[in-house]
Simulated assay, not measured.
Amino acid sequence: MNLNVIISNFQTFKLVDLLDIVIVAFVVYQLLGFISRTRAGQLARGALIVVLIYLIAATLHMRTITWIMDALLQVGLLTLVVVFQPEIRRALEQMGQTDQWISKVFWRSRHNDPSLRGSWRSAIIAICDAAERFSETKTGALIVLERRTNLSEIVRTGTPVNSEVNLEVLGTIFYEGTPLHDGAAIIENGRIKAAGCVLPLSNNLDLGKDMGTRHRACLGIAENSDAIAVVVSEETGIISMAKNGVLIRHFDRQSLYTRLIDEMIPKEPVTEKAKTIDGWKEQVQRLVERVTKGKEEEK
């Protein structure tokens, strides 16, 4: 009988039914991914434990526990809305950014543009050099690299710059005492779009006591977008990077460079000859930078 029902269902299966299943699977996948990346994951596990207790109590006919759980579940939906309010608001904001969905389609083709790849590579080199300098001098800095998510709302909170990314400009922006040093610098298409920008703060309770507002802002933008954020601690000089709501600490210049290249520049097949040439170019550039830095220190 059950087999006949299954066969009859397949006979009436339409293309719209397949679309219905795909949409539901996509929504569930995105929901699980969103929960796993935020503190909502802990709350969701707590809610599942409550439901499990209720099922066990109902199975074993524990009347007192069942009565209490019934009373709790009657207002459970409202409670979940209140508890998950920040996460629900963040998810709806991201869904409302239609340009984010469009940009995902063109992300790879746009970043395969040779000129744009070169701009990003030069920008990343400058960012890593600046991060190394800031780490040595314990200068606080926060740099955000825009990816698919449009950060125009964040850019509006700061001062337009529209400049190439180089060590001198970043050093000026984050020099203590300048009007822009407390905010974030937004890098778009390998150029500094704005500086002194205000970022959303993370509510993550797992951040250490040695990490203040700058680190919460770094993690906050990574929770609310797919941007890559680099932060240098003013107290310890530690270089950290945030991605997808996760803060990774203790980078040096080379490890930060490697990670940013992997994240911001899509890999493309290259010949062994091209790899050798690029390797020699990078070594020569590093040697020139060291010689220049040594001459500056002698002066």
Rank of each mutant, 00 (worst) to 15 (best):
H61M: 12
L92Y: 07
S163M: 09
R191L: 08
S103Y: 11
L287I: 08
D210F: 09
E132Q: 11
V288H: 14
L73Q: 07
T236N: 12
N166V: 02
N4D: 03
H111F: 05
I102A: 11
K138N: 03
P160V: 02
E268N: 00
T38H: 13
K14T: 09
M211I: 04
A195C: 07
V75K: 06
L287Q: 04
L92P: 03
R37G: 00
A57M: 14
Q85H: 14
T98N: 03
H250N: 11
E234S: 15
Q74M: 11
D113I: 02
G208D: 11
L43G: 10
R63H: 09
S8M: 15
C128Q: 03
L170V: 06
I248M: 09
Q74N: 05
E146A: 08
P114G: 09
K138A: 06
L142F: 10
Q85P: 03
N2K: 10
I102T: 08
R216N: 03
E235K: 01
E132R: 01
G190W: 06
S36D: 14
L31Y: 13
K104I: 02
L78Q: 08
V198N: 11
I143C: 04
V165A: 05
V24C: 10
E289M: 15
V291I: 09
N166E: 01
I35S: 15
P266N: 01
F84T: 01
R290Q: 13
R89K: 12
G212R: 05
E223R: 01
I88K: 01
P200C: 11
C197S: 06
E297R: 14
E132Y: 12
G245K: 07
R90S: 02
I238R: 08
G212E: 03
L219N: 00
V246G: 14
L145H: 06
V232I: 12
L55C: 14
V284H: 12
N2G: 15
T98K: 09
A40I: 09
R191H: 13
A195P: 02
L260P: 00
G46Q: 08
L19R: 07
V82S: 10
T137F: 07
L31C: 09
V75P: 00
G177H: 07
H181L: 13
R214Y: 05
T12L: 13
T66P: 04
S163Y: 08
Y29G: 13
H215Q: 14
S240K: 05
E296G: 02
L48V: 05
T178E: 11
